[in-house]
Computed example of a mutant assay.
Amino acid sequence: MSSFKQHLKVMIVDDQRTSRMLIRDALEQIGITQVIFAVDGEEALKAMMTSPCHIIISDFNMPKLDGIQLLKAVRSYAPIKKTPFIILTGRGDRELVQKAAQFGVNNFLVKPITVPVLQKTIEAVVGRLQ
């Protein structure tokens, strides 16, 4: 019997390769293996329009389209507007948190991430990962 998490398709949006790899490795340790990468918000948006993912984990600081702009774009495009959106943040930026909350972010993930925290963050959004 295949589990719920094996069907979860997660998009990681981050302009830093190391960061993308770290998150992917952590997701794999949780048992989430369907992972797609985007290097900026623009690429992520295009990918979401052609083959939507179940969850977006996006960095805040990126060229072209940053995390908040991507969140706004996702929320304003009907077919994907309910997609759970988790923003990665490197600092306790109150302003960023407030802005993201205003645009309907589902959760935050503070770098550096750990596997247990990543799992809790995702479960808070999609429910228990069996």
Rank of each mutant, 00 (worst) to 15 (best):
A73T: 12
G92I: 08
K99R: 11
M49P: 05
I36D: 03
R24Y: 00
A38C: 00
M48R: 01
V126K: 09
R75S: 01
N107S: 13
R75M: 06
S58P: 12
K72G: 02
Q130D: 15
L45G: 09
F108E: 02
M1A: 09
V115M: 09
G90L: 11
A124G: 13
G67W: 05
D59M: 08
I32N: 03
S3N: 13
Q130V: 10
K9I: 03
G67F: 08
L70M: 12
S3F: 10
L45Q: 06
I56H: 05
D40Y: 02
V117M: 11
E42Q: 14
Q34W: 01
K82D: 06
F4R: 15
S19P: 03
Q102P: 00
M62T: 08
V35L: 00
N61F: 14
L70Q: 06
C53I: 07
V10G: 08
R91G: 05
G90H: 11
Y77V: 04
A26Y: 02
N107L: 05
Q29M: 12
I56D: 06
P63E: 08
A47L: 15
F4P: 04
I86N: 04
L65F: 11
A78G: 03
I55E: 01
R94T: 14
V125D: 05
K120M: 15
V13Y: 00
L22W: 01
I68S: 06
E95T: 15
A73N: 05
I55A: 03
L129F: 08
K64G: 02
T89K: 10
I57R: 04
M48H: 07
Q130P: 15
T121F: 13
K81W: 05
V110P: 02
H7E: 14
D15F: 04
I36T: 14
N61D: 08
K64D: 05
M21Y: 13
P112C: 04
R17Y: 12
V115S: 07
G92N: 15
E42R: 12
L96C: 08
P84H: 06
D15G: 09
V125R: 03
